[in-house]
Design a protein around this nucleic acid. Structure first.
Length: 521
DNA sequence: ACAATAATAT
DNA sequence: TATATTATTG
């Protein structure tokens, strides 16, 4: 594999590159030193300087800082080992790529080498093809310094990924999940460890985990994608009854098939995962579309474009492409804590308020719940966030301090949010809370995110007796906005008002919104 | 800041 | 594979 990728690189790169490459070759084994030197000089046309000790090498480097392009050194040397060499080189200026080689391939050692910034670790005897390719490190090293290298690496990796995917079906490598570590300065092994293929059982030094380039789904691509799905769908679901929506028929259309089909249609360069990811989005969209369609059928007064959510904290525009009115499925946060996940502001909206009837009429049943946990005045909208960025705002204080401070959440909870939504925090202490009379100071609200207690207990400890949610039964007034509606915050015309009145209230049950599910503790 | 969209993890 | 989560981008 390495051979192939190397060859490809060679094709793409200027042939002159390696001529006169200045190599500092270090090995205390004279025979081997000579062997390598010969090959490098005669076959590779490099300019080779040899030495037999690390210290010597370092002094050469110090003498002539810019005298070399690359260092090729035996790892185990009597006077110093490769790691120390790497350290010292970094001291000098870290401007040279270093390739280590050694007899043994103790993985711990190899790994350390990479961590110290070695470009590669070759195992003796070094294969000719590897030796001839050492220039690539120079190139990569320089490119990297110029910040261009990501592309190069990415390309190389892509090719490798593609190749390996087509060979053995996505050997979904269980590379030890490298959490993205914050040190971008750290150099990585660029190519996979080039030695033999038996090295592949080594999980620690695999191919570069660099980022994949994003696939841009152009409209043509999208079109083919849909076309592919339709074809497969027809093939798999001959009975039209089972073909309600793209890819959502009785027999689902799966990424692999789509990819195959698309390839037949002449699409190249996509991976199965690309398709999978896109399919996910596609299905989500379809579903939303379906939902809003259904809603409109039942309530013709509601056109999709007529809605917008109030307040800046409201979530996905209820208009255009987002589902209006349909409540997202309830999301269960770990430990039985359920959070309402609304498209609307609930209760007292926070932040810039929509003016006009919107504010009043988009009031949801939640407002009527008298549960201590969710009673209307005790909610406030926090904002929208991805789980990672989720922050919980301290609930509005019953003591009047409205300066909510953010309680950043390392979220141990398993939030099940697919998209960014608005989150709503509940004030755990209702007006009935004993805290009102008993606590001289504002009590610390339970940290519902990090608490190890069952959530209801947190609240109980806090004076909330019954945290169970109730399913609201109140009526919902659903307003309609004029079709030209642009911005909720910008005002409401008389015509709007009229329209709103015309629509009239809808029964909550009409909407079939599973706002909450009762919580089982 | 926000939302969309793709990558990545589970 | 499906789906959840996270990263990146507009």
């Amino acid at each position: 594999m390495s051979k192939e990728s190397s060859t490809e690189m060679a094709d793409r790169l200027p042939g002159q590159f390696a001529l006169g490459l200045r190599v500092l070759l270090v090995d205390n084994n004279l025979k081997y030193l000579e062997l390598l030197q010969n090959k490098l000089q005669h076959e590779c046309k490099h300019k080779v300087t040899t030495c037999t000790g690390v210290k010597e090498a370092l002094s050469l480097l110090l003498e002539n800082k810019d005298g070399f392009d690359i260092i090729l050194t035996e790892f185990h040397m009597p006077d110093m080992d490769g790691l120390q060499l790497l350290d010292s080189i970094r001291d000098i200026g870290d401007h040279l790529p270093v390739v280590l080689f050694s007899e043994d391939q103790d993985m711990a050692v190899v790994k350390q080498g990479f961590e110290k910034g070695a470009c590669d670790f070759l195992v003796k005897p070094i294969r000719d093809e590897d030796l001839k390719m050492i220039w690539k490190y120079v190139l990569l090293f320089r490119l990297k310094k110029e910040g261009i290298v990501n592309n190069v690496i990415t390309e190389v990796n892509n090719q490798q990924a593609e190749r390996s995917e087509s060979v053995h079906q996505s050997s979904s490598d269980d590379t030890v999940t490298h959490r993205r570590e914050g040190s971008p300065a750290k150099r990585r092994n660029w190519d996979s460890v080039d030695q033999d293929d038996e090295a592949k059982d080594n999980k620690d030094i695999k191919a570069t985990p660099s980022k994949k380039p994003r696939v841009h789904w152009t409209s043509e691509l999208q079109q083919k994608f849909v076309e592919a799905i339709e074809r497969i769908d027809r093939r798999k679901n001959p009975d039209a009854r089972f073909r309600p929506v793209d890819g959502l028929g009785e027999v689902q259309v799966v990424p692999k098939d789509i990819l195959d089909e698309m390839r037949k249609m002449g699409v190249t360069g996509l991976t199965r995962q690309n398709v999978s990811s896109h399919l996910q989005k596609h299905r989500t969209n379809k579903k939303k579309q379906g939902e809003s369609l259904e809603l409109r059928t039942r309530h013709p007064g509601l056109s999709t474009t007529n809605y917008s959510s109030p307040g800046q904290y409201s979530s996905p525009s209820i208009g255009s492409n987002a589902a209006p009115l349909t409540a997202p499925n309830h999301h269960l946060y770990s430990r039985n804590f359920s959070m309402p996940n609304n498209y609307f502001s609930i209760g007292q909206p926070v932040g810039p308020l929509p003016i006009g009837p919107m504010a009043q009429q988009l009031t949801l049943p939640l407002n009527h719940i008298q549960s201590p946990l969710w009673s209307s005045s005790l909610h406030h909208v926090i904002g929208s966030a991805t789980p990672a960025n989720l922050q919980f705002m301290r609930p509005p204080s019953i003591f009047g301090n409205q300066n909510q401070e953010l309680i950043p959440g390392p979220h141990l909870v398993n939030q099940s949010t697919t998209d960014q939504r608005q989150f709503i925090a509940a004030c755990p202490y209702g007006s009935e809370s004993p805290c009102v009379s008993n606590c001289p100071q504002e009590p610390e609200p339970p940290n519902i995110i990090n608490s190890t207690l069952p959530i209801h207990q947190s609240f109980n400890n806090y004076g909330v007796q019954d945290a169970a949610l109730q399913i609201p039964t109140a009526e919902l007034n659903v307003p309609s906005y004029p079709s030209q509606h642009t911005d909720v915050g910008s005002g409401t015309t008389a015509a709007t008002q009229q329209e709103l009145t015309d629509i009239g209230p809808l029964g909550f049950e009409d909407l079939d919104l599973p706002w909450f599910e009762p919580i089982e503790w």
